[in-house]
């Protein structure tokens, strides 16, 4: 019987992996779900664009931290809102080995609206990182974050 259970557990685990191995559109409802799911946790939201060289450095930092702990609480959102850029963005997620977690993207034409939903005082400069504390308060920072700060927050 335990063999049967193993098969069920393995099957479900593998399926979950497959389901999560993708990228999902971002919107206000998704944002609320992300916030609710992470309530009580200390987590990080990283916003990036394929047209932002410094963003790749931040993604590389996330990649290296995930090597130390694959379960760090990070949400990654591409802000391009452009079909062409979104296709590139998938390759970038692949390159930085981020396809085993759900990462998000802005659908074509929704960039401004989604940016506003996240933070109406943010003007789209990138990378943009939100350090969210256990009370759910967002602390925004524009530009590449110091590796030590990321490490302290996430590990």
């Amino acid at each position: 019987m335990s063999k049967i259970l193993n098969i069920i557990i393995c099957g479900i685990a593998f399926c979950s992996y497959s389901v999560l191995a993708n990228v999902a559109p971002f919107n206000g409802d998704v944002f609320n779900r992300i916030k609710n799911k992470n309530l009580g946790k200390q987590w990080l939201m990283v916003l990036w664009s394929v047209d932002c060289p410094a963003c790749y450095k931040e993604l590389a930092l996330i990649k290296s931290l995930r090597k130390e702990n694959p379960n760090i609480d990070v949400i990654i959102v591409n802000t391009d809102g452009d079909d062409e850029a979104n296709a590139e963005s998938y390759q970038v997620m692949e390159k930085y080995q981020l396809l085993d977690i759900t990462t998000y993207f802005f659908e074509e034409g929704t960039a401004d609206r989604n940016r506003y939903v996240i933070d109406p005082t943010w003007y789209g400069e990138l990378p943009r990182s939100y350090f969210v504390d256990t009370k759910g308060t967002f602390h925004g920072k524009s530009g590449l974050v110091e590796p030590a700060l990321l490490r302290k927050w996430l590990l």
Binding site: V19, A21, F105
Partner: peptide
């Protein structure tokens, strides 16, 4: 159960692939 798991996996992969496709082609 093995068959069921396999079917579930296939549907999940299709779902994942669909999401990928949605990014590459304009809706």
């Amino acid at each position: 159960l093995s068959l069921l798991s396999l079917l579930l996996c296939i549907s999940a992969s299709v779902l994942a692939a669909h999401n990928h496709a949605a990014m590459e082609k304009p809706d």
